[in-house]
Amino acid sequence: MKVYHRVTLLRVLTISALLFLFLVVVCLAALSLGAVHTGLCEIQAALQGLLAGEAPNQILFSVRLPRILFAGIVGASLSMAGVVFQALLRNPLADPYVLGVSGGSALGAIAGIVVGAGSFFAGVPFLAFCGAILTVLLVFVVAGGPRGVFMDNSLLLAGVVVNSFFSAAILFSLSVVDSPQLRSISFWLMGDLSGAAWRDIAVSFVCLTAVFTVLYSQARRLNLLVQGEETASRLGLNTKGAKYVMLTAASFLTAVAVSLAGIIGFVGMMVPHMMRLVWGSDHRLLLPAAALFGAAFLITADTLARTLLAPAELPVGVITALCGAPYFIFLMRRRGGR
């Protein structure tokens, strides 16, 4: 039996530090792996050289490092969004992809590119955000039973339907519109982390940190909401207000991830679930753990995507779906058996 530990500030900090260490190790491994293998000593030498003002190693610092950081940010965003969606819908199968929020976000981004919103600052991500929010509302309307009770099945069905509609709409717009700015089909349907620019990384990191801060201040409220809305309200929570804050935050994270990296599925479902198994359900611990582990998780998946068939590359969403879909089925069956 798992031993229960009280969630204290000290425990949260300790576990976060441990997971951060793990993340650093994963980053180093990912740095060294690739079409051209780079040993740890070489990485160290390159780092020292960089500090000494020498010209940076192209492969390490212009190709791999930005991509790794980017994967980390996207992975953390998707995992945190997953934590929030799972809590609010009280369903461990929920995730931005499964619910169709990623799809809606992608469609918003594509619409933005097609109408030329890219010429405004953050025009495309803003429309991606609108797409995400609208999808969240849609899923809530379709799946929400009377008095805000979500039945497992209707939720998943709503997600399936919304998802296939968005995939079709994405394929349709990509074949009809011929815009040089539109990226490949696989970017929008399966995710791709190769196009990482330093500016995107900086902006998305700031977004991630800001949203994390907001969500963390709501961590206890998430714990209450998981008990059901009526219970949460009885324990003194203004559930409506809290829900809006959290859904907006989760949609925002999804939009950031999707507009920069396309649709990457199942990360937001698997990571929170694994972390819950190991560390328990308290969101004060779950949020940072999911963010850090989610980062490491997507970095690993992306490293596999670019090394498995090197020099060819797979879309990273292929890797996450290949492990995510069976995981999903496993989870579903286990819940059914309970």
Partner: peptide, 18 residues
């Protein structure tokens, strides 16, 4: 109250302090 996620009993009671 149908439980969804694995909270332990003490965590449930602690929520009463919210």
């Amino acid at each position: 109250v149908p439980p969804v996620f694995p909270f332990v009993a003490e965590e449930i009671v602690l929520m009463g302090r919210f």
